[in-house]
Simulated assay, not measured.
Amino acid sequence: MAHECVRPKAPKAAKIVLWAVLILLYLPIAVMLLSSVFSVHGGHVQATLNWFIEVLSDSNLMSALGNSLLVGISSSVLATVFGTAAAIALHRGSSKLKTVMDSLSMVSLIFPEIVFALSLLAWFFILQLDLGLQTVVIAHVSFSLSYVIMTVNSRLVTLDPALEDAARDLGAGEWTVLRTIIVPLLAPAILGGFILSFLLSFDDFLITYFVNGVGQDTLPVKLYTAMKMGVSPKLNALSSLMFLMTLSVLIFLFRSSAFRVLFEGSTEGRDLDGRQEKENL
């Protein structure tokens, strides 16, 4: 009788390190959330939503939120369109060109944000572009492209080429194949790339701080400016709202098919390439 393989238990030291890391990561967030809904008066702790009401009634903060949503949605749409087109072009290109372009497309993932921000700022000065929300959108598209290309490409490598060949055999042109075969199959990856781009854009501070104009602050920049005067329950409430908005988008991502494509697509692609190599041999 074959003996079942029993996985050994983790040592106690590893469990202690795990819990310590989790506490260090999530305790500050828990303190922030609790500080935004509880206040101390006369030695008594009271639950209140006044700080959230103040945040929602602050016209400056709501204007910054509008700027963040405008930049996030605009840059995500552009990055998704351009990144999807680039991923399809790279997937169909020659192997040597694909290797070079794949490496170049990952530049924003490798370069430090400060270097990326300074290079974009210098480029805008050379082009004599006035700094404002339009330069922020351009900058966010620049660093979001890599994530969209990576996400869409992880789905492309899992597609069966026979589907395109069958469509062409039935008389479909390239545009028809792209519109009716490829894009619907890439829809989960495209959605995942859009959500990733939006999250990166909505929460970005460093690059936005360098390329933004005067009087057009996004919410992270506005929060940083306000924190110079000290941390207050109102700022905790604002940070909590940003955290909850980001968390809700992440929950949507995890519950959608885009999550499976994003985290499992590359593995499936490698398995598919391995099977094809074995068949060729």
Rank of each mutant, 00 (worst) to 15 (best):
P220E: 04
A139V: 00
F143W: 03
L235K: 02
F111A: 15
N236Y: 00
A122P: 02
A189T: 10
A187E: 03
I251P: 08
L272F: 05
E277Q: 10
Q128W: 08
Q276H: 06
N67G: 13
E264Y: 15
I190T: 01
P233I: 12
L33E: 01
M227K: 06
Y209C: 05
S232V: 05
E277A: 13
I53L: 12
G215K: 00
F205N: 01
F82L: 15
L170G: 14
R92I: 02
S232H: 08
A258D: 06
R168N: 13
K222D: 09
L272S: 07
Y147I: 07
V261L: 02
L78F: 03
A258W: 03
F194H: 03
N153L: 04
K96R: 12
G42E: 08
T80P: 11
H41S: 13
L22C: 08
E174M: 09
V136A: 13
S266D: 06
L170A: 15
L97K: 13
G213Q: 10
N212V: 04
Q216H: 14
V81I: 15
I195W: 00
S257C: 01
E113C: 02
L272Q: 06
A166Y: 00
D102N: 15
T180E: 10
V31D: 10
S146Y: 00
A117T: 06
A85R: 00
A64G: 13
A14K: 00
V261S: 12
L34N: 12
L241P: 05
L196E: 02
P8F: 06
G132N: 05
N153Y: 07
S201P: 07
D130I: 08
F252P: 01
A139K: 02
L90G: 13
R260V: 14
L27T: 13
I73G: 08
V37M: 10
S144C: 15
S256A: 03
I207M: 09
A47S: 15
Y209F: 11
E279I: 10
D203N: 14
V211K: 11
Q128H: 14
F124N: 09
K222R: 15
D58C: 12
V107M: 14
V107G: 09
Y209S: 15
L241W: 04
E164L: 05
L131Q: 11
M1S: 11
A189Y: 06
F124C: 11
L118C: 05
M245H: 04
S256E: 01
L24M: 14
F194R: 03
L24E: 07
N212D: 03
F111S: 14
E279G: 09
V55S: 05
Q134I: 04
T208I: 02
V55A: 09
F259I: 08
V100K: 07
L200A: 10
A166L: 05
D271Q: 09
M32H: 07
V6H: 13
I114F: 03
L65V: 01
L272K: 10
H44K: 14
P11D: 07
W123T: 15
G265A: 08
T267G: 01
L170H: 15
E54Y: 07
L133N: 12
F252V: 07
S95T: 14
G83Y: 02
L262M: 14
L97N: 13
L121A: 13
I195E: 00
S76V: 03
K278C: 01
G132I: 01
T135M: 02
G43I: 00
A189D: 00
